[in-house]
Amino acid sequence: MAGNNPNSKPMNLTLRVWRQKNSQAAGTLETYQVKDISPEMSFLEMMDVLNEDLLRSGVDPIAFDHDCREGICGMCSLYINGRAHGPERGTTTCQLHMRKFSDGDTITIEPWRAGPFPILKDLCVDRSALDRIQQAGGYISVNTGGVPDANEIPIPKPIADKAFDAATCIQCGACVAACKNGSAMLFTSAKVSQLAMLPQGQVERKTRVENMVAQMDKEGFGACTNIGSCAAECPVGISLENIAMLNREYIGASFTSENV
């Protein structure tokens, strides 16, 4: 099939890839050539081809994060040609295909760059700062006991939809990577507003936003200036509206919560 498509001509590419031995070492951009890349490969498959070449020639393969390769787990990252998850909107790197590039292209591949995301090796960064923000308040109280009936708690459809949209965040960190300020507010706002909109989230509502924002600041993420590059680069399309809601929730909670 590949052979019948005029666009499926194999490509030769030049890759500039960030190599860094460990979190302490200094890194550099190294140049590699890859040959006969099928346009139908995903970007990560192209990286696999490169790594096999490197292994054959006795070079340490490039470390990069990946897991499901279906665009749902949030594990893959990569800053490709100046964009988080590459040039295509609403796409994770594993769902980015080589047909978006042309034969002879030079592609620059860098890790997410942010102080709170220390580089572990090459293109892998430690994103556990986002886990700690989540742990600071991204949970709800649930009664133990009998299984509740389905739809026992009425939730208006538009609210359920909005909460679900916020819940689609896969915690990949592209928002932080794309943000000029290295802000994690799109991530935090998605988590806060998802729960603030639902009846189940009301018990911890005020404490949640206070604690999650405090943790976000403590991790050293920047402050949002409403540029919007986070939402533009988000692979699942988390809306900037969530940040307005986060601001609203935080200001409200600061002045009305029981936490002095």
């Binding site: 500039r16 960030w18 800053y79 760059r113 942010a114 000029k180 802000s183 920047g222 919007g228």
Partner: peptide
């Protein structure tokens, strides 16, 4: 100042004009 300190190593290649 705080925001600038968040990214001590800048991207070698960055295209913010594509998203903002």
């Amino acid at each position: 100042r705080r925001n600038k300190s968040v990214r001590p190593v800048a991207y070698a290649y960055n295209r913010p004009q594509d998203n903002s």
